[in-house]
Amino acid sequence: MNEIEIHNLYKSYGPTKALDNLSLSVEKNGFYGLIGPDGAGKSSLMRIITSLLLPDSGSVIVGGLDPVKDYKKLRLKLGYMPGKFSLYQDLSVEENLKFFARVFGTTIEENYHLIKPVYSQIEPFKNRRAGKLSGGMKQKLALSCALVHKPEILILDEPTTGVDAVSRREFWDMLAEIRKSGITILVSTPYMEEAVLCDKISLMFDGKVVDSGSPDDITSGFKNNLFIIKSANVPLLLNVLRGMEGLKSVNSFGQTIHVVADSSETGKPEIEEFLQKNNVSGCSVEQSPAGIEDCFIDHILTNTTT
């Protein structure tokens, strides 16, 4: 039995469809990522799972319970960290944690082993007001608070948004550590590069899941040939390549350009030839396996054109 099982879920806010026939399943003790930009429906989905929102239609089972009918029992099983930093800024680190422990009928001491990997990092500042913590420390406190009652399922809505790279990496390491205690984790992020840190992911766009599976499954599902072109002048090269035929898409990736071929007829020689014809020199063209972001772009392009 899967820990989270969702079938044909719909949710609208007036005329806007937030979730559009969405299905996904998270296995017990899974480490599952929802990857998608703002407005893809990640938060709505998480709020339905946590029983904070009612679905319009579809079936949702979380921890064997129905979030609509059994919300009271379900809420005891859940640890939830909303997208916005939601702790009491005027309370100290320790007071926040104590409060949430008490509300769930437990104490810090009882579950200290569970929160230790996270809380030990901010414990030296336990008398500081939460409002005075840095972004990374706030996230750690919020995570401690979500964990302190020993939830079975941990739902984290964009925990790493707005946090610097170091804290972000520490945060993901902590999640991997927490998972060892048997907790199921569902986490969302708009950042494609964080996808590979999860076991399984769903790529979300416009209220739909456009692809699901392990990160490897998803990248190996990318069937077209992809070429990476390095250039000193990306803007110029972008304009040139957009004029080439036989290409499905041309996208900038920082100082490189990713080019997706329409068919096997377009290969490295054809691209190099085209660049030469257009008097572009000093670039290297390499065929490469696709990354998550390539897959995402590909899905959006096929989704919006059809």
């Binding site: 930009p37 948004t161 707005g162 708009p190 996208n251 995402f296 772009i297 959006i300 392009l301």
Partner: peptide, 10 residues
């Protein structure tokens, strides 16, 4: 471009 989709970002 924090949080926007990959196409819009480009």
């Amino acid at each position: 471009t924090s949080g926007v989709d990959p196409i819009t970002r480009r």
